Simulated assay, not measured.
Amino acid sequence: MSQERSVSFKGNPITLVGPELKPGDSAPAFSLNKNLLESSSLQDFSGKVKLISVVPSIDTGVCDAQTRRFNEEASKLGDNVVILTVSADLPFAQARWCAAAGVDRVFLLSDYKDNSFGKAYGVFIKEFHLDMRAIFVIDGNDKIAYVEVLNEMTEHPNYEAAIAAVKSLL
């Protein structure tokens, strides 16, 4: 039985499916597409602090701004930190967006095939088959240190709190 909870999109209720993860929980394993043929998993970033920035679609204003902001922050955080942006966009769209935006420090990974990341991390939007805007900070031992799942899809996350959570693990 899947867990569900309500959040909103422009004030209208939408349904998130999956567990409500909390700091101290083990990060669920995932496999996301780098492109159509290659995938990336949680184990690929073993030992590193991971900031996972989840966006509904890279081609929207807030998602664009969120990804650009974390790309800027990436250079200040050192080699022991990896920033992943996860969306249900096709890998082609992610690659096109990165090239156009000059984003080169953040790994964009796609949850388009079966939304398994969204369902495992409790951010799958039932009505849209997209992932809800969220931030997860995961330590080098794959324990969740920080979680922010937004209640309103169109709002920005708390960038400062997410970066502070990463810095606290260094």
Rank of each mutant, 00 (worst) to 15 (best):
F9V: 11
F9I: 12
G11H: 07
N12I: 11
I14A: 01
V17R: 09
V17S: 04
V17D: 00
V17Y: 01
P19A: 10
E20R: 08
E20P: 07
S26Y: 09
S26K: 15
L37Q: 12
L37Y: 14
S39Y: 09
S40P: 10
S40T: 07
F45K: 12
S46W: 07
K48L: 08
K48F: 06
V49L: 08
K50G: 04
K50D: 07
L51N: 03
I52T: 02
V55L: 15
I58N: 13
I58D: 12
G61E: 12
V62D: 04
C63G: 07
A65Q: 09
A65E: 10
T67P: 08
N71D: 15
S75D: 05
D79W: 02
D79E: 13
D79A: 11
I83A: 00
L84C: 01
A88Y: 08
D89W: 02
F92C: 03
F92D: 10
A93V: 05
A93G: 06
A93F: 05
Q94N: 08
Q94R: 02
W97R: 03
A99K: 14
A100Q: 14
A101M: 10
V103R: 04
R105G: 10
F107D: 14
L108D: 09
D111N: 09
D114Q: 13
S116K: 13
G118H: 06
G122R: 00
G122E: 01
I125C: 03
I125Q: 03
F128K: 07
M132I: 05
A134V: 00
F136K: 00
V137N: 02
D142F: 08
A145H: 04
Y146H: 13
E148A: 07
N151L: 12
E155T: 15
N158E: 13
N158G: 08
Y159F: 15
E160Y: 05
A161Y: 11
A162Y: 11
A162H: 10
I163P: 12
A164Y: 03
